[in-house]
Write a protein that binds this DNA or RNA. Structure first.
Ligand SMILES: [Mn+2]
Ligand SMILES: [Mn+2]
Ligand SMILES: [Mn+2]
Ligand SMILES: [Mn+2]
Lengths: 217, 217
DNA sequence: GCATTTTTTTAGGTTTGTCTAAAAATATAT
DNA sequence: ATATATTTTTAGACAAACCTAAAAAAATGC
């Protein structure tokens, strides 16, 4: 595997993430990377020449097999460092991302694989996202309804089936959004309501609400 | 402390190291960094504007107080990472430098200080070089060159001044590493070579090699 | 002291990654 | 279908960090 610049790696990773939610275009990628559409076009030409993305002017773009492989390697590094920071250095889980954003670009293969081994081959980062193994293989994440989440097992909110204003208002009042990490602390038999831990706070969720929330585990 | 580029940091560190052995000039620094004199001049102007070096055209240069502080911070990061790689990830002591060369540029203050704490505030890196503390303070080490060690007096290897692969290969062949305990058994007047006792074995050390080995007594 | 050599700087150019402004292509709405 | 709006690309510029070749300054040798 060749060596790529920090910038190239950040583009590849961003395309990979956007690809998960449909087609990737110039403006979306520019927004994601906080850069300008013109810069994206420039980079897409370069990444196309390096055979990391399929790209034709005006036709959008997506990663090649090689590009996907690279993306998974960068994500592997990122999430392993996040795990290290949280587990070993006792960073809180909302502080790890920024630092991992830099560490992920240190490219020594031996460093990454030894780190993985040292950490005991963890399968999920502190946000609950799966860590690709040395071959770039990712454990398929299971998505379960909040009503089915086990006690004291972290889940990441990834989908809400009702997206009415009323629903979203209630969610934001309880500090819950897409990507929010939560844990069920208590499940009351009487009304199936839940007491959950979210962002260092405790909230109560009715069964009706819980039925509409899905989490990654 | 502001943020500096990888390039600026490498220059600052190189000046610091060269400053230890006399005055620093354009050609020496270019050689040290494997770059061209013209590039050095460009960078010196920039570092002068950032008040990290004292510099006037044709008059050589040296670090300002601020520059020295930055150099010690970079060296702190470098040596802490080297310690981490050797101690936790079981890298051999001749593999750590290259990777630390990249890791040293990740600038999060919190990362460095937490890493220091996690490692138990080590005072020496795997090559026996002292690790600056969070205030940039370095422990003064009392050590003597192997050429000056008395006969039959034990010494602990704590530093090698040449850290090239060739040197490290020779040392490991002779079973000598950081922390190795040894004793000089005989000193030959003809070529100043030494016969030493190390790990129940006898080895011969040339004067050239001995000059590069330092021991704690 | 003056000529020669060495060191250092300047001048001008390249690559990478960014930007703004304008032009071109595509999508949308009546 | 055509006008309008949006998206994307091109053109041209800029800063960082490097380069080569030439000029200038400093050091050295006689
Ligand atoms: Mn990054
Ligand atoms: Mn994460
Ligand atoms: Mn470095
Ligand atoms: Mn070292």
């Amino acid at each position: 595997m060749l060596n790529y610049s920090t910038s190239e790696e950040n583009y590849i990773k961003a395309i990979f993430h956007l690809q998960g939610e449909g087609s990737v275009n110039t403006n979306k990628l520019a927004a994601e990377l906080k850069t300008r559409p013109a810069s994206v076009t420039d980079m897409m030409k370069k990444l196309r020449d390096k055979k990391l993305v399929h790209y034709q002017a005006y036709k959008g773009f997506r990663l090649t097999t090689e590009g996907k492989k690279l993306a998974l390697l960068i994500i592997r590094r990122h999430r392993l460092w996040e795990f290290f920071l949280a587990e070993k250095l006792r960073f809180s889980w909302d502080e790890v991302h920024e630092v991992a954003e830099d560490l992920e670009h240190v490219s020594s293969k031996k460093l990454v694989d030894k780190l993985d081994e040292y950490l005991g081959f963890p399968r999920f980062d502190p946000h609950g996202d799966p860590i690709p193994d040395a071959n770039g293989k990712i454990e398929p994440t299971k998505q379960v309804c909040l009503t089915d989440l086990a006690l004291n097992k972290p889940g990441i909110v990834c989908y809400v089936s009702d997206q009415s204003t009323e629903m979203l208002e209630l969610l934001s009042h309880k500090n819950i959004g897409m990507g929010t990490r939560l844990e069920i602390k208590k499940r009351f038999q009487f009304d199936q309501s839940l007491e959950i831990r979210v962002k260092q706070q405790t909230e109560t969720i009715s069964e009706v609400l819980a039925r509409n929330i899905y989490v990654k585990i």
